[in-house]
Nucleic acid binder design. Structure first.
Lengths: 136, 136
DNA sequence: CCTTGACTTCAAGTGTACTTGAAGAAGTAC
DNA sequence: GTACTTCTTCAAGTACACTTGAAGTCAAGG
């Protein structure tokens, strides 16, 4: 199994070396072996980094990801360890989607609007917000 | 027209006085009149603040909102002045929604997964990512 | 031997959007 | 006349996720 130094890991994963050191310092990554002081990784680091990246993009903070990975490390099924966190996050994602869609409505009104003044456009926007809340 | 002091504007708008001063310092709000040093606003400030709030929730940064409001101030129709910015933002919103939905898929896999190890779960996640890209 | 390049550590800096704290002034209440 | 509240300014602090800089180490190449 080929051993990688941090520069190569950074290049392959697209994650900056400084970020990799940071993740390590935060406990997201295990302490790697060293060769004359330098970090040496095997390729499994790439999967771990892509998992971290995925979790990040799922909206998890570094602190949360640490908890998630701690679950992995203990080899317990995620379902148990992650349930609360992932359910909360699923809700947040739904909220985020709903909010983004509301923003899209706002932007579409703004773009189609030929308002000569602030007041008119404000009114149009308020109307669109009301429309967005119709089904509540 | 009733004149409001910053505390009342804050109470009515739901935006902290410190945030209002901050927006002013950033050029999002005009310099208000003063009465013995204190800011005095008329009610139109409330509309302006709600517009700022709206733009914020549409994902615009303070710097961007400043540009948008500069357009308003010149009373040119938003459609022209905002086109580039809003179109870009619409794209970003679509990306954000797509990403959030991808993350939901990931989370659902993770939750239903009984992986004994990191590797298995990683595979399941990768499979779900591929599934998310089917139609591309 | 000396330079080069990739690495090391640790502290401090970055950007965003505010908030908080200190020290003081103005008008109101008793 | 002094206590209280609400305001004023300005500098510094907060949170997050890194990045950057300084100063030094290590192995390889010329």
């Amino acid at each position: 199994m080929p051993e990688l130094r941090i520069g190569e890991v950074a290049a392959r994963s697209g994650i900056a070396a400084s970020a990799i050191r940071f993740y390590e310092s935060e406990g997201l990554l295990p302490n790697p072996d060293r060769e004359s002081g330098r970090r040496v990784y095997d390729e499994s680091i790439l999967e771990r980094l892509s998992l971290i990246d995925l979790a990040k993009r799922a909206g998890f903070s570094v602190a949360e990801i640490k908890k998630l990975l701690a679950g992995f490390a203990r080899r317990t099924p995620p379902a148990e360890r992650w349930r609360v966190l992932t359910e909360k996050k699923l809700k947040q994602l739904d909220e985020r989607i709903a909010e983004a869609e509301q923003m899209k409505r706002v932007l579409r009104v703004v773009m189609s609007c030929r308002c000569p003044s602030l007041e008119d456009c404000s009114k149009a926007i308020h109307a669109s917000r009301a429309a967005g809340r119709e089904g509540e």
